[in-house]
Design a protein around this nucleic acid. Sequence first.
RNA 1: GCCACCGUAGCUUAGCCUGGUAUAGCGGCUGAUUCGUAAUCAGCAGAUCGGGGGUUCAAAUCCCCCCGGUGGCUCCA
Length: 614
Amino acid sequence: MQILMIHSDGLEFESKKPATKEREEEKSGKYGECIVVFTSVEKGDLKNKKEIIAQTVEEIKQYSSNVGCEDVVIYPYAHLSNELETPNGAMKVLDLMCDILDKTELNIERVPFGWYKSFSLSCKGHELSELSRRIRAGDGRVSTENVALSAEEKTKSEFCIMNPDGEIDELKESGAKTPLNVLIKYETKKDRTANEEPPHIKLMQKLELVDREPGSDAGNMRWYPKGTMIKRLLEKKVEKLVKKAGAMEVETPEIYDYAHPCLEEYLERFPARQYRVMSGEKPYFMRFAACFGQFLIARDAQISYKHLPIKYYELAHSSYRREKRGELAGLRRLRGFTMPDMHTFVKDLDQGLEEMSSQFSLSMEWMESLDVPYEAAMRVQKDFFEENKEFYKQIAKKLGRPMLLELFDERYAYFITKFEFNVLDTQGKAAALSTVQIDVENAERFEINYVDKDGKKKLPYILHASLSGSIDRNLYALLEEAAAKSRRGEKPSLPFWLCPTQIRLLPLSSEYVDKCSELAKELTGIGFRADIDDREEGLGKKIREGEKEWVPLILVIGEKEVEAEKYPIRVRNGEDFSADMKELIEIMTKMQENEPQRSLPLPERMSLRSKFRG
RNA sequence: GCCACCGUAGCUUAGCCUGGUAUAGCGGCUGAUUCGUAAUCAGCAGAUCGGGGGUUCAAAUCCCCCCGGUGGCUCCA
């Protein structure tokens, strides 16, 4: 049961047309001063009607005595919940509840169930005039939410383009189909339809990287060895970047108390998005980001202005968001995902902007490693933009190409400015990867402060940064880019440093397997991933399968090679060549580009590998 | 939440409209083959046709319900 109580000067309503099959009698009405109880009967309430109704009646009585008004109007209102009871069930619960309310000193009026209604309501607007309650069976407690601020103020945004020279252009209506234009279209148009599944889903399964896990909830994946390896490499790379930025790594819990004062308020901004877990009788929620854990650390820390900026980093593996079913899409949007999350505490906005600028560079470095085209979007409150125009010009220059600029007049979230890097997939959908935001709200909410020069406690600003964005989504971006390549007629591939097999050695017959082992050992010794296709198959088939696995380099060994110590190398994306070991290592080192390394995720000999998926 | 489409061996899939317990390839296993840059040959095993109910002498096939997947939409008492 979800209720919203408004202490009002008057309510007037009129039934317009039927909304549900089962409904009460049509009715219109007008009341003077009263408490309007907007009520959503939720799934399961009928089953637990006794407890639910008793609690709800208590809440209404309490509120009535608090505001000193005994006239109550029960208004069936579906929009407070997205898990509704059936109409019949809901009416039953409402009937029972009104029966009980009738026996109290309150005067009960009812608005009919099952109609589209027009209404006008005037809210008194004093401190107690709005109150929302959620009543759940077995909770043993009632959670409170003050809805006053969630009035959904629609902020107005202006979109424009900022060029590298700092000049600002208006959005052009049509224009060429450049990636930036696709992003603009995505941001400004409502239509986001696609009618086929994104290609990365089939790819992640075929390549045996990731798969859905039927034994879990939707949006929670299983990662096979090759996928896990890619994930770990990406994680290692982010870690390298945040360490470069000077962050300290921490680890924080995955479940949090609903009733914690700081968190309660925070949660209001993310309604009904969490997984709930019970610890005995007490409900907790799974974290949907690593913010809380790090904020709670900062809250207890003794911080001097001399320490700032301070950075905490955590690889939030995992974070959980109970996204609506229809919103889930492969690796693009999940319910359980991995989020590298860094928070920077700074003493003032100048220091904040300085940090934002250097984190912008690190994010660019990330995207470069990924080798996936991206577009930048900068969002900022209008006044703030005017005051800091120079800063934004510098950022635009750093990017070196036009970026989308959104100016909003009212702050709709906790940040005053932020940027993201978006990738555009083959369906023209945008997905944000790297992002940095300057938070001007949560230091106060979480009581995080530092001691300044003058000995006084002050509130820092907080930068939320995910230099990479969700790791899962990065793999989505990589696979979508590969799909885009094949659509352009190129061979799909991954960046060399992320290929599960970087070079495959093919013995022409079983007598050359030993030679392959020898070479593999040499390559593995300096950190490359080399494997050997020692299966009893024809050369043609082995080549074919190597190509199907997107292996970037394939080396065949037969009699000639053993004698000459020079090897023919088949290159997936480029010209085949021939080289001895020294030259080969040089070339591979160049391809590796100093990115993180990790050993082979599967047995070196293919004859020992099991299939994960047929 | 709602709508649409889908659900046949580990994977891909024929059959479904016009009812008679199922087709093939890959993969797996066994044997033969020791091979020069995208599929060597033969044999064997493998499916209560997503689950449940109904109609029928008979259901993968027709009807109903449920579950799962994919995509889309959405705030309606």
